[in-house]
Structure formats: structure tokens, C-alpha cells
Design a protein around this nucleic acid. Structure first.
Lengths: 335, 335
DNA sequence: CTGTTAGCGCGTTCAG
DNA sequence: CTGAACGCGCTAACAG
């Protein structure tokens, strides 16, 4: 409620000095600083973030660009960001992307008049034009689940994750292992990289183990439980069906589980299923899966945002989060 | 990029006129308006929302205050808000409330320097002090899932929902019906009203049907799957256990299902279970439940925000959304 | 109807 | 070190 002027008057200094002590910018004599701080305290002065934003051309907000915000993994990451921002006293603005156009629209606004102090982009690849916009606005988002030259990023090693899952199956004795994942470039227009990378880990591992790839065991399609269920039915309807299936996400794994149930197959006796992510539903379904720290990824991204804010010159960082195999009830040796 | 001055110069008018046509405020001659619009077009002028916010003391943002944002029902509502806001080209700022203090902290900022154009509060009860803050900031949030004098709200009839669920069980022939819900006033410090209201509907319905209440059949505790599971075990361990259980939420119903499974009870032969909300997990669990339009509630709230923005004098509205019984596989006649 | 001018609250030169 | 003054981009009286 109190403005910088009142603080200045009360402290017997100019507004510029108040600004200096509030932002720790420039030199201020200790005695003066104390007087200002006292006035700030007495008036319980809080700088107006909007005015500050206007002057600095940078709004006190952290923007998050997230595809499919309701997807369980997105929810977890948003949670991490929201938590971290709450601790910083910084509002988070959520920008949902359901179709590729949304990305462009949001980016246009964000690099235009809205100009957040911090910016996080989840899973999305920035186009050349968008990168140009960002540069002109001197905005440098922190990326999650994608890597792009010149940006700090928080990722996991998806390929290793795929390998981890596959090796687990191999070690249980499986040789006929199916894979169900997303389209390399979905007809939804997005090109998420997680699934393809996990697939690569799968391929590398089974061939590395001397097991021949069977193309009929591999299916990709639009992401979702339903589609995974259909694919699983196709695999399980084969003459020599796989004895285990690696789904590129827990959501898809649940679809596989549904198909197995519908065919009267026992899990894991007749079919082993392993997922990826370890979102909430994985625990309820007692699903074996590869856990990735989703909430943590959101939190770390905000940390990186803060680091870059403190030192804009700092070169991009690359944070790789650990993943681990979580063994539950859906995997076992083939019978 | 272009400012209002450039547009004014180009159109050969004053900045105020440009402002008038941009905001449809005041009278502007048609010919003049056309010239301005032309200039706007040629320069592809977009008003700077931050500057606008400073001048109007009202930031172009819609703030959402939400307890437990990661809870499935909250996620759905947020989805509705985010979708509606995307269509409006309006950013949404998310304020998560995990403990009561967060509410106060966020509200203090929101009524202080941040002053969103629109404001939605989910499930939370505003204190007298907070209402005073809001008034001073001339902010009037739209409420979801709560009712409070003087505020527009989007709700469902929770009591009727409780009645609906209970009647369904009654009609199937059940007479020993348990209830598992939230604490009236959680030790988490929140006092959400949904569960108590649903409970009231339950009570009204069984007594109305001439069935005697058995206090041993009713349990409330901190919200969550785990706690519900424990409560269910207690009920099912009774000498004359209930043949059906009404859980105040799907989350809790899933906990009940887990308990039943652990005791080797068949559902619905040995135990019927009905939940509330119809969130995603209800479908996967094939759970009979009471559906409430969660996404819709978020969307409607934003609509109300828009209505009030257009006409601040308008008296508070009360929107009651429809609910319905969704019959799936977890309820059946007692054996 | 329309232009001028004074804020909105703060950051930032630029002299002192 | 410190203060006065200008600018950020727009809205809102207040004259005309």
C-alpha cells in the first residue's frame, strides 16, 4: 500500500536510494541503508511488482509452457514448479498447449508484452522463429524433458531407462519382449522425444543380448491408454505372442494390463508388463516401472531459473536426474 | 512492439482516442475509429498488458487459488480454467494451498500489488480479514465448491449427491451401508464442506428409508486412499459388516476397493462400493460413482469471472451443476 | 467527440 | 554515495 515515495520521504532520502537498497544495486552508505530499511519496516513497504515490471520490462512471474497439463506426468512437474515458486513468493502462470498452434500463440504473448522473469518449457521443441522471438525479448527458458542448444535443461537419460526396463525383463528370462510406445512424430503434431529414446534403449538392449528384433512385437501410436490397449491386443493375438511388454509410459502400461485382463491372461505369470514414469496410477496398479523424479524435475527447473536470473551470463546448465527400476507385481519370469 | 503513441501519430489522433477505441470506452466518431483501427492493423499494435495493469491497478491475469492442486479433482478444475483462459488469451496464475497459511499469504499478495482482473477460489472459505482485503482491493473472486454470502459460486448439490449414492445402494437391496469420508474439520486445518454434505445426504436417505443408522458403519478421517483403506478394514472386520460402502470420494473408494481385495472379498458380490466425483481413476477401476462435472466447473467459473468483469455491479450468481449416477461394476445386489 | 495532461509505482541515467 | 528527473505504456479526468 505504501509507495516508494512515502518510504523515501520517511527515510529522508530520494526514491532512487530506496530503489537501490531494495534491489541491492549501486552503493549505499551503511547508515543510509539502515534508515531506509527502518522506513521500509515501519511502513511494511512492499514494492509493486507491476510497476517494477513496467520499468524493467520484465514481469514478476514465472511462466510455464506445458503440453497436456492434465497428463499425470505434467501434473507432477507442475506441482514441483508451483511448490518451488510458492517458496519464492513468485506467481506461476500456466500456459497449456493442446495443439501446436497454442505453443506459437503463447510464445508470441510471452515474448511480447508479458515478459516473465522466469520461463520454463516442458517437453516442447522451440522453432527457429520462436527462438528468435525469445532472443529479442532476452528470454531464455529452462527446458524440461528436451534438450536444445543454448538452453539449460533438466532431463533424464531416457535411452538408459529403456535399457533398464528391457534388461529387467531379459534378466527374468524373457526373450519375446514387446514394445508399445508413442509415434515418433505424433499426428497430433508434436514430436516428443521420450518414447523414441526409450525405444532405442530397448532395441539396443535386446539386440545386445543376442535376441532378434521382431517387428511384429513393436507398436507405436497416439499416446493413450486406449490405443495401448488395442496394440496390446494385437501383440497378444499373435501366434507366438510376447511374454513381456515394455510400455513407454505408465498410462500405456495400464492399457496393456487392461488388454491382458480382457484376454484372461494372468500377470505376471502369462504376461509381464513394465511401464515408465512411476506416476500415481503405477502404484495403484502395482505396476513395475522405471521411476523418474517428475516433481523434482519441476523444482530443479525453477532452481535453474533462479540461477540464471542471478547471473544471466552464466552458460546453460544440463541437469540429468536419476532414474531407477521399481519392482512391483507385474513382472516375473515367463512360465 | 509498437506503442500507443506511434499508433496515435500514425492515425493522426491523440493517445486517448486510441485508448478509447481499444477499450470501447467513451464515444468515438466512426470515421476516427476506422483510422485508428487501420493504424492498429498496420503496426499490428497490441496494448502492453503490464502498462495497462499499472494504470488500471488490475493486472491482465486470472488468479486461481487452489488447495492441493495435484488432487485429481483439482487438476480437472484447473484444466477447465486453463482451457477457458486460453480461449480468452488470458494468462492463469496458479496459487497452490497446501496448508492454511498459504491461503493467507497468497491472498495478501493478490489483494496487494498483484491484482488480477479475475480471481477464482476453489473449495476454500474466506476469512473475515481476507474478505476485507478483497473489498479494499475491489476484488470479488468467483467461488467453486463453496458458498459464501456476496460471491458468485459454482457448486453442485453435494447433499443430493450423497442421497443419490445411498438410494442406489438401497435400491439394490442393501440395508447395511457404510460411509467413509473426510473429517468435518480436518486436522489439516481446512474445513471442506463436500464430504460432510454428502454424509448428510447419506444419513437423510437411510433414515428416510427406515434403516437404522449404525455408528460403527461411519468413519471419517484425513482424506486419502490409505486412510480409507484402513477404515474399510475396520468396517469389514465387524461381526456384521456392511454389505455396501459409500465413499465420499473416488480416491477413498479406491482405498475401500484395496481393502476388499486384501480381505479376499469379491466386488460387488460380497461388497458394493460407490464413490464420488468420477475422476479418471474411477473409470479405470470400473467404479460406480456420482459424476460431477469438474472440468465444467472450472470453465463456468471463468465465465462468471468474465460476466462480472463486464458488469461489476451485477449481483452474485449461483450456478448449480448437475450430477448423475454412473453405474459401473462395483455395485450390485447383496448376496 | 477528441486532445492534453497528469498520474500509476518503480528503475535508471546523469549530474552533483 | 545520493537525488532530481525522465521514461516504461497506458488510463482517466479535464478541458475544449
Amino acid at each position: 500500500m505504501a509507495s516508494i515515495h512515502e518510504v523515501a520521504r520517511r527515510a529522508g532520502v530520494g526514491v532512487a536510494t530506496v530503489s537501490r537498497v531494495m534491489n541491492n544495486t549501486g552503493q549505499v552508505r551503511d547508515e543510509t541503508r539502515r534508515r531506509v530499511l527502518a522506513a521500509v519496516e515501519e511502513l511494511s513497504y512492499r514494492p509493486n511488482r507491476t510497476a517494477r515490471g513496467l520499468a524493467r520490462r520484465r514481469l514478476a512471474t514465472i511462466a510455464a509452457l506445458v503440453p497436456y497439463v492434465t497428463h499425470p506426468s505434467a501434473v507432477a512437474r507442475v506441482q514441483g514448479m508451483v511448490e518451488a515458486c510458492r517458496d519464492l513468493g513468485m506467481p506461476v502462470s500456466l500456459f497449456d498447449v493442446e495443439v501446436p498452434e497454442h505453443q506459437r500463440e503463447h510464445l508470441s504473448g510471452l515474448t511480447g508484452d508479458l515478459r516473465p522473469e522466469g520461463f520454463v518449457v516442458v517437453s516442447l521443441h522451440l522453432t527457429a522463429q520462436e527462438r528468435a522471438w525469445l532472443q529479442r525479448a532476452s528470454l531464455r527458458p529452462v527446458l524440461i524433458d528436451v534438450e536444445q542448444e543454448g538452453f539449460s535443461t533438466v532431463v533424464i537419460d531416457d535411452e538408459q531407462g529403456g535399457a533398464l526396463a528391457t534388461r529387467h525383463l531379459l534378466e527374468l528370462g524373457h526373450r519375446r519382449i514387446g514394445f508399445i510406445g508413442d509415434l515418433e512424430r505424433g499426428q497430433d503434431g508434436f514430436g516428443f522425444r521420450a518414447s523414441p529414446l526409450r525405444h532405442r534403449g530397448y532395441v539396443r538392449t535386446i539386440t545386445g543380448a543376442g535376441v532378434r528384433r521382431v517387428s511384429a512385437y513393436e507398436r507405436t501410436g497416439p499416446h493413450g491408454q486406449e490405443m495401448a490397449r488395442r496394440h496390446a491386443h494385437e501383440l497378444l493375438g499373435l501366434d507366438r505372442p510376447p511374454t513381456a511388454i515394455f510400455a513407454a509410459s505408465d498410462t500405456q502400461a495400464v492399457g496393456v494390463l487392461a488388454a491382458a485382463r480382457e484376454r484372461g491372461l494372468r500377470v505376471p505369470e502369462d504376461l509381464s508388463v513394465i511401464g515408465f514414469d512411476d506416476v500415481e496410477i503405477a502404484a495403484s496398479a502395482r505396476l513395475t516401472t522405471i521411476r523418474q523424479p517428475l516433481v523434482e524435475s519441476g523444482r530443479r527447473a525453477i532452481q535453474l531459473v533462479e540461477v540464471e536470473r542471478a547471473d544471466p551470463a552464466r552458460p546453460p546448465q544440463r541437469v540429468v536426474l536419476d532414474i531407477e527400476l521399481v519392482t512391483r507385481d507385474t513382472t516375473g519370469p515367463p512360465s
